[in-house]
Design a protein around this nucleic acid. Sequence first.
RNA 1: GCCCUCAUCGUCUAACGGUUAGGACACCAGAUUCUCAUUCUGGUAAUCGGGGUUCGAUUCCCCGUGAGGGUGCCA
Length: 449
Amino acid sequence: MTKGEHTSEVRVRFAPSPTGFFHIGSARTALFNWLYARHCGGKFILRIEDTDRQRNTEESLRVLFEGMKWLGLDWDEGPEKGGNHAPYFQSERGAIYEDYLQRLFRSGHAYRRDGAVWFRVSGKPAIIHDEIRGDVVRLEEKDFVIVRSDGSPVFHFVNVVDDIAMGITHVIRGEDHLSNSSKHVELFQAFAVAAPKFAHIPLILKTVGSGKMSKRDQGALIEDYQRREFLPEAVRNYLCLLGWSPKEDREILPIGEIISLFELQQISKNNARFDEKKLTHMNGEYLRALPVDQFVERCRSALGSSGLSGAVSDDYFREVMAVCQEKIRNLETLGDFCGYFFRDRFPFDEKAMEKLFQGRDALERIDEFLKAIQSQPAGEFSGESLENLVGSLAESMGVKTGDYIHPVRFALSGKTVGPSFYHLLKVLGKERVEHRLRTFLGGFTTRDQ
RNA sequence: GCCCUCAUCGUCUAACGGUUAGGACACCAGAUUCUCAUUCUGGUAAUCGGGGUUCGAUUCCCCGUGAGGGUGCCA
């Protein structure tokens, strides 16, 4: 079955509790649920598990919703959207829980002790039908609390009640819930309802050290990627590959294709270590594949707060970005990479400075280059004619073109890396180039005295 | 401690009894009469250990070992 062609009875849900941040592991759980729903033509439901009253804040919800939208994970039922099973906040579903609780009392599955309500376990092993791991058998040995003595219902209870009430067919969640699932299976049995199919997906581990990613680890929060100007489609693609892989040896593929290829059986069983280097690589691939117009737009918003883009014309901005696109891997460092296009004062790489200007040769090359371009009409300050100019200059002086290119690039940008040299000159323009070279040489004269 | 899950290059993974064990990131080396944080080419690098089953095990079974998770009136 492929996207949009059919509708099915598949109903999956992402059920986060608002914590104030959007963890990468939660995001991937949401993503896998979403992919499965879209693959099957089923429904993706967002349900907010806010039974822990203290943590339920507006800000927490905002972070969550924005993160979901940023990743393109739209939900079919839930907050802001509604649906036949509203409300979608557990804090508003008290009457439903009360009703289900009475059923457990009547059937003898629940009892009161110490002011709380407890669930009586069956004493028999529960079988968890897992689409990824096969049947997992686990004995739930002890009765557990389902309503606290302050009257608030516990996760295990409301989670199962809502899955029943909302007609959830597949529970796709992190492997850290696998041991909980035997409790949940017991609850489903107590309600005389067939348990949904489960899919316990592997966890995302720290890049270094032991344990799963925690909110304090670098790269653990979706809002950080938003702030750091990663492309959401790159983050999403990377996340798809953390625990799942398509057939063939493909990694970067459009979301529509991922949807049609996505199968629960194809999900890996083992935990995956998070690798930001690979994410950054993919981000670069996505950046370079962007149509120029879109790339320029993303750059504009990425540089928005830096003040770099404000002072120049749209055309100039566009030219600069077009020249940077083939080199850049992330938008986070864009300002550092191309700041010198917008300001005459920019930092110089000290180490490169020492290496490049040990003797006076490099300064003489800059001087020669400066004299050579002065005779060049401003209108002909373009790639091809500049290339010819440097070529014949080098030839007449008996040196390599690189002997001009490296020091001049450095004097103009403070860096040894950047866009292609002739593009750099052309975009900066003759006037700016001459001015910067003079200033640079002047700085050396002063220093020598 | 007890319970559950997992185990292929440093990392993410492919191979669901027969492959020179494949791809990607990273790394290293070359190339691009201009850099490289781009692009292209090439290279190093893996089946945790021990027993079985089988003509044949990365693949199936058992035991170790290692890793991860759970063991709350958190979710």
